[in-house]
């Protein structure tokens, strides 16, 4: 008994140390977004100036909108593209599907820098021949390329879980194949599709290395702007925008989790009621 309690204490201390390690830099970042001097280490007093100035900083706001636009577009296109491809792959023979899935996994297992550099070579080589420059277009293509594999990997398992007889049943009952697809297949795949879209969006918004090699010098994502600044000096305005984004994600996650917990509790209550009803009978 004694030993069990001691091991719980040790594991709690371990957890605390890990979480301090994970959150120390975030704490520093957020704290210094309110610092009234530009110093990264000396606290000079509280201010909200950086948050106010943020919205007047054209380069940060541009980078932010580029990041948001490329992430949303790439995630949306990759979701549709990946889902359609998953359907196609599902109907292929295994002999064809296995090597194609292996190629699909290349961007996932390769180091980001190799993916970035290889796409950079491609874009520069064909850009000089077909007269286009690196920019938003190449950035978007690169993001779609590394997003589709995630969508494919999260939709494929749902296809294998799909009960084919449901589709047959729908068609027996008079659905056209297209209607059966929309009314039966798509809803069954939905959790996988949504999951894939979320992963794709997260990967896009988080990416630095691949964007860095494929965006050229005219457009810049938030990560690229931050990287350029870390080479010189980071303005606290960047701390401010990151703190805002972090806060937004935190609120979103809390809302989702609270909703899930509530739904589970409601389900449990309903089940308990049912059981009680059955007992009384």
């Amino acid at each position: 008994m004694m030993r069990k309690r001691r091991s719980t204490v040790i594991s709690r201390i371990f957890l605390a140390v890990i979480f301090i390690f994970l959150y120390a830099p975030i704490f520093v970042l957020i704290t210094f977004s309110f610092n009234s001097s530009k110093s990264r280490t000396q606290w000079a007093g509280f201010t909200l100036d950086w948050y106010a100035e943020l919205f007047n900083d054209a380069s940060i706001m541009n980078a932010f909108s580029t990041t948001l636009l490329v992430s949303l577009l790439a995630a949306a296109i990759a979701t549709v593209f990946g889902t359609v491809t998953a359907l196609g792959f599902y109907c292929l023979r295994k002999r064809w599907r296995s090597p194609l899935m292996a190629v699909n996994n290349i961007p996932l297992t390769n180091a980001d820098i190799v993916t970035g550099v290889s796409l950079c070579l491609l874009f520069v080589f064909f850009g000089s021949r077909l007269k286009f420059n690196l920019g938003f277009g190449t950035l978007l293509v690169a993001h779609i390329t590394f997003n589709v594999p995630y969508v494919l990997l999260s939709v494929m398992p749902k296809l294998y879980q799909l009960d084919r007889s449901l589709i047959d049943a729908a068609q027996d009952l008079g659905c056209t194949p297209a209607r059966a697809f929309l009314k039966v297949t798509v809803p069954e795949l939905m959790p996988g599709i949504i999951n894939g879209a979320i992963i794709a969006f997260t990967m896009s918004i988080d990416d630095f290395v691949i964007s860095y090699f494929t965006a050229g010098s005219t457009v810049s994502t938030l990560s690229m702007t931050i990287y350029a600044m870390t080479r010189r000096r980071v303005t606290p305005k960047i701390n401010a925008i990151s703190s805002l984004l972090f806060g937004a994600v935190l609120v979103l996650l809390i809302i989702i989790n609270v909703r899930e917990i509530r739904q589970e509790e409601a389900k449990k209550r309903a089940e308990a009621k049912l059981r009680q009803g059955a007992m009384q009978k």
Binding site: D206, F208, Y227, N239, S242, N257
Partner: peptide, 21 residues
């Protein structure tokens, strides 16, 4: 959730914060 949350803050900035530390 707490383990995944830091990944939502730009990794360059978090690494830069380690510089300050």
């Amino acid at each position: 959730m707490l383990i995944m949350l830091p990944m939502w803050m730009n990794f360059l900035l978090r690494t830069y914060a380690w510089m300050s530390i």
